[in-house]
Amino acid sequence: SWREAAVSVRIVEKHPWLMCFRKRGNLVELRDPLHWTSYTLSLPELADSTVGYARDGWLLMNKTRSKDVFFFNPFSREVITLPECELDFDKIAFSCPPTSDNCVVVAIRFPDFSATISTCHPGDDKWVTATYPSYIRAHRRSNIVYQNDRFYCFSADGTLSSFNPSSCTWSYLCAPQLNCSYINDGNNARKETAVALAEKEGELFVIFRSSNERPMVYKLLVSLEEWEEMSTSTFDGLTIFVGFCNSELRTNLPWMRNSIYFSRFGYNRKHCVSYSFDESRYNPPKEWQNWIELCPPQSLWLDPPPKNVLSSLHNN
Rank of each mutant, 00 (worst) to 15 (best):
Glu229Lys: 15
Arg281Tyr: 05
Ser312Tyr: 02
Asn316Leu: 12
Pro297Glu: 14
Thr159Met: 01
Cys153Asn: 13
Leu224Gly: 06
Thr119Phe: 02
His271Pro: 04
Arg31Lys: 14
Lys126Val: 08
Thr232Asp: 12
Leu173Ile: 08
Phe244Asp: 15
Leu46Tyr: 02
Lys63His: 11
Thr232Gln: 10
Leu34Asn: 09
Ser114Thr: 06
Arg214Asn: 15
Cys245Val: 13
Thr159Trp: 00
Asn184Lys: 15
Tyr275Glu: 12
Arg250Thr: 10
Phe110Trp: 06
Arg214Ile: 01
Trp291Asp: 13
Tyr282His: 10
Asp32Met: 11
Leu46Met: 15
Pro285Thr: 11
His271Thr: 13
Pro254Asp: 09
Leu204Glu: 06
Asn148Phe: 06
Pro111Arg: 07
Arg109Tyr: 02
Ser76Tyr: 02
Phe154Ala: 05
Ser155Trp: 02
Gly52Asp: 15
Thr159Ser: 01
Cys180Ile: 03
Trp170Asn: 00
Glu248Gly: 02
Leu204Tyr: 01
Cys174Lys: 07
Val206Ala: 05
Phe208Asp: 03
Phe205Leu: 06
Cys85Arg: 12
Arg281Phe: 02
Thr99Ala: 04
Arg22Asn: 15
Lys14Met: 13
Gly266Ile: 06
Arg3Trp: 09
Ser276Ile: 12
Tyr218Asp: 10
Pro215Gly: 09
Ser142Lys: 10
Phe241Arg: 10
Cys295Leu: 10
Asn148Gln: 07
Ser134Ile: 02
Phe265Pro: 01
Ile240Glu: 00
Arg109Lys: 13
Tyr132Glu: 01
Pro165His: 01
Trp291Val: 09
Leu30Glu: 08
Trp288Tyr: 15
